[in-house]
Each structure stands twice: as C-alpha cells, then as structure tokens.
Design a protein around this nucleic acid. Structure first.
Lengths: 235, 235
DNA sequence: GTAAATGAGTACACTGAGTGCACCAATGCT
DNA sequence: AGCATTGGTGCACTCAGTGTACTCATTTAC
C-alpha cells in the first residue's frame, strides 16, 4: 500500500497514524454495537469485542477506559455544545433564555447523532435495561453538570454563587434525564421522548425565570416556558 | 452462651439466627469504615474487609451486592421516609407542601444517622473523592426517584402524568444532590452542606408551587420557599 | 536519505470484584 | 429427637481493568 510516500501532513491534515487510530476506534465501536445488539450487553465481554474488531483486548482499553465507555464514544460533544451556548450568549441575555437555548441545542443534537450506526438508539435501550450502563451515563452527566454550572457562573458572576449555580443546573438536568428515562421505560418512540425532555426542561426553566427577575412581576404560568401542554394532552 | 434455651420468638422477636446475622453485617460495616478511613477506599479490598471482620469473602457478598453497598448500609430508610411522608399527606395538602415536608424529613434524617459510626461522614467524603462511590450513590438515588415519583403520582393522580411526576422529582433531587456535592467539594462543614441542600430544595420547590395553583396569585419570593437567603449572604 | 524519537498496538502476567456450587453446622420447628 | 431451613465456608471460575516490556510503523530531525 503506497504509491504515495510522503502523505500529506501539509495543509493541516491529520496524518496516517491518527487516521489509523480512528479507524481501530471505529472498528471497536462497530463491533461493540453489533455484539451488544446480537447477544446483549452482559453476554458480551471486552475480549469478544476486541476479537471481533481484530485487535487485542489491551487495545480496547487504550481507546476506552471502561466497557461502558464504548457507548459514550460521541460523549463530550453535547456538553461542549452546551458550554459553548452559554459562553457565546448575548451579553445581556437573561439566564432563562440562555439555558433554554443550551437545552434546545443539546436535545436537538441528541436526535441527530443517531444516524451513523444505531449507537444512540442502542444506548437508549441499554440505559433502561442495564444497570451498569445506566450508572455510567448518570455519572457522566453528573460530572458534565459541574462543567456547565461553572460556565453558567462565569456568565452570571454576581447573580449566582456556586451552590445556586449547581442547584439550577442540577434541577435542569435532573428533570430532563428523569423524564427521558421515564419516557423510555414507557416504551415511547424517540420523538415522544424528545418531547418529554423538552417538557421537563420547560418545567425547570419556568422556575429559573424568577432568578433573572429580582422583582418578579411574572414568574407565573403565562411566562415563556409554557410548562404544561403535556400534562394536559394526557391524563 | 445460654442459660436461656428457648430464646424468645415470643412477642414478635427476632431470634438468635437473625441477631447473629445482623451482628456479622455490622462487623462488616465497622471493618469497612475503619479500613476505608485508615487506608483509603481503593487500597482496601473486599478480602481485606472480610478478613478484618473475621468472615470469608463470600460472606461479604452475602450481605452486600457490591463493595460500594457497604457504605449504603442504612440505604433505603431515607427513601421509605420520603415515600411515607407523601402517602401520609393530609388529603387536600398542596403538592409543594407535601414535597417540602418529605424533603425536610429526608435532610433531617441525613444529619441524624451519622452518630453511630462515622458512616455518613465517610460516605460524604468518598462521594466527592471516589468515582466508583459517587456513581453508586447517584444510581441509588436515581432508582429511588422512580419510587418517589410513583408515590407522588399516586397522591395526585389527575394533576400529574408519569412524565411530569418524573420531571418534578428529578428536578428536586437533581437540585439537592448537585448542591450537596458542590458544597462538599467546597469543603464546607456538614451543617452548611445541609443548608445548601435546603436552599436547592427551596429553589426547586418554589417552582413546583405553580403546579398546585393553576391561578397563581403568589408564586413569588415571599411564599413558603424563601429561596434566596443563601444567594444573598455570599455573592 | 538515514537515523533517532514517538506512539499505537501486542503479549503476558497479575489484581480484584463478583458468581456458582457443593458442603457444613447452627438454628428453628414439630 | 428428627427434619428443614439458612447463614456461613472453601474453592474454582469469569471477567474488567492495569503494569510492563516489547515490536513496528510512522513521524521528525539531521
């Protein structure tokens, strides 16, 4: 393999080494997704995955710290998105709006990234069926919270102390993830789950509004959140 | 041992067997707390704990499903408390009030259970330093959420659908736990951490009020939540 | 162009969590 | 006293995850 000797590190390219690395990484993800789907998560060992991807078991752990992490391959992208949404706010934007924007971005992205292989769908299934995966996802989200809370505090340094910032972000993500899992457990289809997440975000955000407006004339149901279309459309 | 032959299974008593079981269980907890404190969590193996408690390693797993679980020995008590607080509500009590009560009970209990051995304090320390413990606690709390959400929904069947119930409870516990961890990470003393939890609960509850009162005349800062003494006393 | 430096992948041995199983012995029940 | 139950044991096993010393392709420096 090699008509071209001197590849092109020119023009800001990645280089063969890095490309090959991403290749094995992708092979591992694909093998994992396939095996998890075919045989189930618990019935698939890391050795199996490595074997199927035709690398050594040690190599697996060169790319992923734990067995669960292979399911979070796309991982930090969404968090980065949220952080950037907060950091790139208009200077005088109210907190509620900024958080609403960040939330919307994240949920939208959740929907998008699914196409390549069935990663997101598989993950969704495993989150409600496999405790180990659920625990890992939960933990990942929790650590992400602190990053987001930090960004938020940086954005509103004199409105928020550490505790309040943590509480706000905790309430937001707590509501969203609880609603998402509840929806998944009910066996609802993806777009309904996304709606559930939005609904829960609306709940949390509705409150947050009252932090923006020190003299709350309108922390009421009328506000921007429109929190209860869902509570109505069922029962 | 044994002047009394036929102990007393009379009058609803526990019996020697059960008593001995609790004894070994307690021995395991004590040994674990001591070793974790002396040598650190990661430096202590389950075999070590079992050895120190003078039982076999196999016995450890007869009492605790995982190494982390030994730290959650008191575990489900607090959840039961919350569930009971919800179930035992006055028939017409507003949701906010019920949840406030449940929250207060839980936080109070958190403070109380610490006395016997340093379990709660140790756990608090490990939650912020040891990922495995943090993950386990998080997961425990998350599963507890569904029980609480179910109880809440049972209490307010026509105000709440599954999703909203999950969202409400998720927001509440998300806010509380995020604030608690933030406080612990700041190295704050226990009573300050408890205050942080209360503060975060107030945040979440303040919103929830608006679910009770379809026509909110007073979902403002004056209400029962008193949400921001903390945000002021720092900044 | 050649040599040194780097870093992905490998082989292998090891620790430690958690499980299955057959068994023993104390306890509880009648 | 005799039988059933059940907490605890010993042992062998699986599997996740790590440390280490090695190879070899690629990259970089000369």
């Amino acid at each position: 393999m090699s008509v071209v000797h001197y590849a092109r590190p020119v023009s800001g390219e990645v280089g063969r080494r890095e490309r090959k690395k991403q290749l094995t990484r992708q092979a591992l993800v694909n093998a994992a997704v396939r095996l998890f789907t075919e045989q189930g998560y618990d019935q698939t060992s890391v050795a199996d995955i490595a074997e199927a991807a035709d690398v050594s078991k040690r190599t697996f752990f060169l790319h992923f710290a734990t067995k669960e992490d292979v399911l979070l391959a796309d991982g930090s992208t969404r968090i980065d998105l949220a952080v950037r949404a907060i950091e790139g706010r208009r200077p005088d934007a109210p907190m509620r709006e900024v958080l609403a924007e960040a939330t919307k971005t994240m949920i939208a992205n959740t929907a998008a990234g699914d196409l390549p292989n069935g990663l997101a769908a598989l993950r969704a299934r495993l989150v409600v069926t496999t405790p180990a995966v659920q625990a890992r996802v939960l933990h990942t989200m929790f650590t992400a919270q602190t990053r987001i809370a930090a960004a938020l505090r940086r954005a509103y340094p004199d409105t928020l102390d550490e505790i309040t910032a943590a509480g706000v972000v905790g309430a937001l993500t707590g509501a969203i993830s609880a609603a998402a899992v509840a929806s998944l457990q009910l066996g609802e289809p993806p777009e309904r789950t996304r709606a559930a997440m939005q609904h829960a975000a609306g709940i949390a955000l509705h409150y947050i509004e009252s932090l923006d407006t020190p003299d709350p004339a309108a922390p009421r149901a009328s506000g921007g959140a429109k929190a209860t279309p869902r509570a109505d459309d069922r029962h």
